Structure formats: C-alpha cells, structure tokens
Amino acid sequence: MGAPRMRPGGRSRVVTDRVLSATAELLAAEGYAALNFQDIAKTAGVSRTTMYRRWPNCAALALDAITAAVTERIHVPDTGSLATDLAGLLRQIADFITSPLGTAALAAGLEMESAEGPSARTTFWTRRLGEVAPIFERARARGEVSDGFDTEAALAMAAGAVYYRLQVTGGEVDAQWIDRVVGMLDTGRSPA
C-alpha cells in the first residue's frame, strides 16, 4: 500500500491535507474502529467520491494520515553529535506516543494489521527507517560509529526502549532516562 496517487500541489494537495487532517483528528478522538469515509468527508468538507479516488479504504487513509502526522511532528535532528541527535529523536518519539493521536495511532496499527496484513506496518517502518538513517550516516562520517554499525538494530533498541518504557511499564521518559538509553547505544560497536 503506497502513497495515494495525486498531482503535486494545487487543489489536490489542499484536499489531501484536509482529508489527512480530518482523519488524524477523528482517529485521535474516536479511534480507528470508528473511522469511516462519511464522517471524514464531512469533517474535511469533501465528497466521499473524492476520497475513494485517492484511498481504497479507511486503513490506507489512516496509514497516510498517521505517516503525515509522524513526518510533521518527528523531525530528524542534526546537532553534530550522535548522542544529542538520538536524544532529540527519542524525545520527539516519546512526545508523539503520549499525544492523543500517537496513542490512537499505536492502537490503530494493531487493528490495521489484522485487517490489512503486515504490509502496512512494513511500509510505514521502512519509510521511517529511511528518514532516520541520516543520523547514523552523519555519525559514521564523523567517526562516531564504525562502518559496520547496524543502524536498524540501533534504532530498534533506542525507539523500542521508549515504547517499552511508555507502553509496557507505564514509566516516564525524561531527559535522564533518555540519556541512559543513548549512553548504552552510543558505543559505535555492533555486537559480534
């Protein structure tokens, strides 16, 4: 499931932005199970036909809305240091997860997977890993990590720690906790 086909810019972009915004708003307020094209169209001020031309179902639309929100709210830092880049990224991830939309997005991911299969999850996370990879590429260029550094594993450990802390233990993610996680990852050595 890829991004909807559309002309760049113009009216199409405005309509798409309104639909994605309305979807995110309703997802945060009512959850994925309550999403339907009729309510989204009414909130966005567009026709359902317009929406069906771009998205085949609510799962595809929800995935695009979540992706747009994550892209808007989680920016890849470039501070000149792997440790501070990772700390900034983890802070943004924690802030998003604890927001109403982030909480709804996590729940929606599980519901969408049962309806759509793992392809939606794979598409989303492959895209996110590609967007975050520059943190590690810059660290490699600065000599902070080795050429064999496992970017995917490092991101999994760092982001996974945030999800674990917030979703499993219910703990807080503060600056000191983030520094502990980053300190454990900031060795530049992949396990053998």
Rank of each mutant, 00 (worst) to 15 (best):
M6G: 10
R7I: 07
P8W: 08
G10K: 07
G10A: 07
G10S: 10
V14W: 10
V19C: 04
T23E: 06
A28I: 02
A29S: 11
A33R: 15
Q38Y: 12
K42P: 00
K42R: 12
T43Q: 15
T43H: 05
T49K: 10
T50P: 05
M51T: 01
R54N: 14
A59N: 15
A60V: 06
L61A: 04
A62C: 07
A62W: 07
A69E: 15
V70H: 07
R73K: 15
H75G: 02
P77I: 10
T79F: 09
G80I: 05
S81D: 13
R91V: 03
D95E: 14
F96P: 12
T103P: 00
A105P: 01
A105F: 04
L106N: 08
G109W: 06
E113F: 03
S114L: 06
A120V: 14
A120Q: 13
F124L: 15
W125S: 07
R128A: 11
E137V: 07
R138W: 09
G148I: 00
T151W: 02
E152Y: 07
A158D: 09
V162T: 03
E172F: 03
V173D: 11
Q176N: 15
W177E: 11
D179K: 12
R180V: 12
R180L: 14
D186T: 00
T187A: 11
G188E: 02
S190C: 04
